[in-house]
Computed example of a mutant assay.
Amino acid sequence: MNTHKKLIDLLKDFDTAMLVTRGVDGSINARPMAVAQVEEDGQLWFVTERNSGKVSDLMLDSEVAVTMQSSSKFVSLSGTAHPSDDQAKLDELWSEGWKVWFPEGKSSDTILLLRIEPSQGEYWDHSGLTGVKYLLKAGKAYLQGERPATDAEANASVSM
């Protein structure tokens, strides 16, 4: 499996992510976000509040990072955020669970879609057989006082 496809497959394993933006004062801000959709080309969609701090951050600097983590899988993307009022896309993505944040439903004026266009990504996948192989390598390296070799199947940097 090529690294680009592997990265996109890993993205689809996550339902939440941390969206990292640069604040008005230059600070770095990270916020948990529900992943609305992962497209086949790796673009991510989120739904947010139009008047939120993250949207204010994006007005000054649209470059973002998105990170995802489980106990054995890790993904990091960097790219550009694009706010969108695409009603057809919102209709496609809408989840009744979002009524917690948008009680008026998908017709709420406060809903804004965020499309993240990734420029590069990295992953570390130590799940399944790959994880077992890594644990064996790490154990051997530990006993020998060395660092374990990285495995291109488990770790890669990908240009999108």
Rank of each mutant, 00 (worst) to 15 (best):
D151M: 02
V64M: 02
I8N: 03
Q69H: 09
A65M: 15
H126I: 05
E117V: 13
R50L: 10
T80A: 11
S159M: 01
Q120E: 13
R50K: 14
Q87Y: 01
T16M: 11
M33Q: 03
A65R: 13
I8G: 09
G79I: 01
A156K: 02
K12Y: 03
V75P: 00
D86S: 11
L113E: 03
V24K: 14
G139V: 07
M1Q: 06
S76A: 14
M18R: 08
Y142A: 15
M18C: 05
A154P: 03
D61M: 08
T80E: 15
K106V: 13
T3P: 07
I111R: 03
M68D: 02
Y123A: 05
W45Q: 07
I111C: 05
A17Q: 11
L112W: 01
N51S: 12
T150A: 04
I116W: 09
A17S: 14
E153V: 06
I111M: 03
L60F: 02
D91F: 02
E122G: 10
Q144D: 06
E92C: 07
V24H: 05
K73S: 13
S27Q: 04
A138S: 04
S56K: 05
V132M: 14
G105R: 07
M1F: 01
V64G: 06
E146G: 00
L136W: 10
Q43E: 15
A30T: 13
I28H: 00
W101D: 08
H126G: 01
D86E: 06
R22D: 01
E104S: 08
L90T: 13
T3L: 12
T80R: 15
K137P: 04
K6T: 15
S76H: 12
E40R: 10
V132H: 03
H4V: 11
P148A: 12
P83Q: 00
K99R: 15
T48S: 13
D61P: 12
V158D: 08
E92R: 14
A152W: 07
S157M: 11
L143Q: 13
E122S: 06
L10I: 00
G131S: 10
D57M: 08
T21N: 01
L11F: 11
A30I: 09
K12N: 00
E39R: 14
V158W: 08
T16S: 02
L114E: 05
L93G: 03
W98E: 00
L7C: 02
E153K: 04
R50E: 10
A34T: 14
D57K: 07
P83V: 08
E39S: 14
L77I: 04
W45C: 09
G131N: 05
D151W: 00
S107L: 11
L60R: 01
L60T: 03
G121N: 15
K5V: 12
G121P: 08
K89Y: 02
D109Y: 12
D109G: 07
T48N: 10
